[in-house]
Design a protein around this nucleic acid. Structure first.
Length: 419
DNA sequence: TCTGGGGTCCTAGGACCC
DNA sequence: TCTGGGGTCCTAGGACCC
């Protein structure tokens, strides 16, 4: 059996742990740059704040309804997530951290020997007592059905108390007939539209389609999903943690045309990718750079391009990354456009220790030691203490974060105080 | 004025190999 | 008349997730 554990309104719950006044109050969390709403408490959902709502359009509604608005505080959410995951891992060695607020747990052989409902109650208690974060749990024979069970646990929290075990065929039929097709995990907007055209309106309808049709229109991904919903496990637990691609991309505070400005941003993004790679001991073999104008500015000239560059040898040296990123940038930058967003993505990641050496092109052997020192200093003295000369040394680029809460759990100066 | 960021997987098609 | 067969690797683009 699989369990899908999901933190309820995770970001909003994190804010509430350290600010109990927010309990039973509407809370909304904004994306980077305070752009749009990416998380809502139940109260905020009830007030009709949709996911992805642009903050500036909803300003009045926030005020009128006394909605507590926060900027994203990833230092806090990331740390709280690690605590939740840590507690969950006490219950089984087989765990896949699926996202910042979700994990799949596998219980092999438990169904005959243990009462899953009881285990669920223990997990819930442990996490809520240990972190203050409320969770919902769905148990089922496959991952996709565990997702369904979790949805039921949450939707009917009054009856389920946040835990639902989906085990019998009767339960499965009932659940699939209840679940709308566009709410199925793995069915996005495009597929939902096509399926609805064919009069497929529930998860159950979907499982009645012929395999060939699903395979043809939705590839093996769709077919696997169908099997999963039928109760035949087709997705396994994926415990490996290392990422296959790493990205640093940002929207700018406003539009920029200036070559030097954007070049500095690209350099900083490349350096950030280097830091992230070194953290997981990876090197990249490919680096990709993109930039684009503001797609919402309909009367302005639009331009967007990306370019992919192979590095001559696998690297995670910020010095090299900046060099190749700028080479790419020079090729795609065009004068005369108002740029709003850019990014650097590194791909083809391989473990640092077994990289293939090149015959003629070698990484400067001094880089690796240098990077280690820079990382160590930045870690102990604060991020960005050491910058590269290609970065803006005077101005510190800042995201708009007007409603940021404290880093209660990761910074000693911002620890909660009791008066 | 203001509209996020970071991921995964799959397929088709082209270039290339023997 | 008939012009092979079996691969790999890479990339762009599309779908999806949180």
């Amino acid at each position: 059996m699989f369990a899908l554990v999901d933190c309820n309104n995770f970001y909003a719950s994190c804010e509430r742990v350290f600010n109990p006044k927010l309990n039973n109050q509407p809370v909304a969390i904004l994306s980077n740059n305070d752009g749009c709403v990416i998380a809502r408490s139940n109260e905020a959902k009830a007030l009709g704040i949709p996911m992805g709502a642009p903050a500036f359009k909803y300003q009045k509604i926030f005020e009128r309804n006394h909605i507590h608005v926060f900027s994203s505080n990833y230092a806090l959410y990331g740390d709280m997530s690690a605590r939740v995951m840590n507690l969950l891992s006490e219950f089984t060695p087989d765990m896949e951290i699926y996202s910042i607020d979700e994990a799949f747990l596998q219980f092999v052989g438990y169904e005959t020997h243990f009462d899953l409902q009881k285990i669920g109650e223990q997990m819930k208690q442990r996490v809520e007592k240990g972190t203050g974060i409320p969770i919902s749990i769905g148990f089922a024979p496959t991952k996709a059905l565990a997702k369904v069970a979790n949805r039921i646990a949450k939707k009917f929290a009054q009856q389920t108390n946040g835990i639902y075990v989906l085990q019998t065929e009767k339960q499965r039929f009932k659940a699939l007939k209840w679940l709308k097709i566009n709410d199925v995990w793995g069915i996005g907007r495009q597929h939902a539209i096509r399926l609805q055209k064919h009069n497929i309106n529930t998860a159950f309808d979907f499982t009645q389609l012929p395999d060939d049709w699903v395979r043809k229109h939705m590839t093996v991904v769709g077919l696997r999903l169908k099997k999963e919903l039928e109760g035949k496990p087709s997705l396994s637990l994926e415990e490996v943690a290392n990422k296959k691609a790493i990205a640093t991309t940002r929207s700018f505070d406003t539009q920029y045309e200036d070559y030097q400005y954007i070049k500095e941003r690209i350099s900083t993004f490349a350096i950030s990718c280097g830091e992230k790679m070194r953290k997981q001991n990876s090197c990249c073999q490919v680096i990709s750079v993109f930039l684009k104008t503001n797609k919402f500015q309909h009367n302005a000239a639009q331009y967007g391009k990306s370019i992919t560059i192979k590095t001559p040898y696998p690297t995670n040296s910020s010095i090299d990354l900046v060099k190749y990123a700028i080479q790419g940038f020079d090729k795609i930058y065009k004068k005369g456009y108002q740029y709003k967003k850019a990014g650097v993505i590194v791909m083809g990641l391989i473990p640092e220790e077994n990289r293939q050496l090149a015959l003629f092109n070698q990484e400067n052997p001094k880089h690796s030691g240098l990077m280690k020192q820079i990382d160590a200093i930045n870690k102990s003295l604060g991020n960005q203490k050491i910058k590269f000369a290609c970065q803006d040394l005077k101005r510190t680029w800042k995201m708009r974060q007007e409603h940021l809460s404290q880093r209660y759990t990761t910074n000693i100066n911002e620890i909660i105080s009791v008066l």
